[in-house]
Amino acid sequence: MSFWDYLAGHQQQLLTDAFQQASAVFQCMVIATLLGIAIALLTYRSAWGGNLAITTTATFLTVPSLALIGLLIPLVGLGVPPTVIALTLYGLLPVVRNAIVGLRGVDPSLVDAAKGIGMSRVAQLFRVELPLAWPPILTGIRVATQMLMGIAAIAAYASGPGLGNEIFRGIASLGSANAINQVLAGTIGIVILALLFDAAYVLLGRLTIPRGIRD
């Protein structure tokens, strides 16, 4: 059976897997972004706090994804929970690091001006610091999404959703007629999803980065 025949025959299954993968990555990215920015906001003003946050989130990244998911299974069971937890943890580092670097990189004289003209702490944060730090934060979110796309495939190991199922099925039945087709379909599907997400981020940047600081 040729690759194209395989695609045509399993269209429904592949689309469902792709949708589930995209949905899982998207939802985990939303959680990772909110959590990551919150962590950054709480820590960026103190030297050791910020560094601690970056080091901690970086540590998650050094744990192999397969191992992390394996460790999570006895704690939270199979399926969606270990997938969401693992993806969120992996997504944190780029967001936290870029948010901290971005917030620290805001020109101190602008923060001084914001304070000096009578902005409250909250207004300083939401009207000046976050908008100015937004381009690097968005880059962090973008990098994290690309990474999660790949890691999400591993989640199939814990019966998680997504195109990883396709790949694992193929690997499990290596030598059979459709093994290579399955692995190929899963992999190419992930690459396509990643590219689509990236395009969406470019658009998001156009829409959300103020014209005055856009390159």
Partner: peptide, 30 residues
């Protein structure tokens, strides 16, 4: 202090204008 600063004009070196806001938005802040 926040209320106090709104009653005191403050101009600094290199203008301190917010680059992500237009001229009008900057002036309208206070």
């Amino acid at each position: 202090p926040v209320g106090l600063r709104r009653k005191i004009g403050y101009a600094i070196q290199a203008s301190g204008l917010f680059p992500h806001m237009t001229v009008a938005e900057n002036i309208a802040l206070v």
